[in-house]
Amino acid sequence: MTGETKSDRELDCLGLYCPEPVFRTRQEIDKLAVGQVLEVIADDPAAEEDIKHLVKRLGHQLLELQKEKDGIHFLIKKMK
């Protein structure tokens, strides 16, 4: 868990490469209710840029992005 924000769902994308983290993140976002938060962890070097663009394009909010030893943790809030 990163920071203070609690997530409602978690998605492990460790060891997966483009387009998998993006595709699976989208599938998980679809399972959230508006206002809920998804935590994604990924270690594909492309994931930092890709997930930022995905979240922006879909109109959701990236609450946090933290680089930790095991990978990048994203907290994504579903906005609509």
Partner: peptide
Amino acid sequence: FTLGSTATAMD
């Protein structure tokens, strides 16, 4: 298909 998959994921 990588482009296509990503496009559908990006709506």
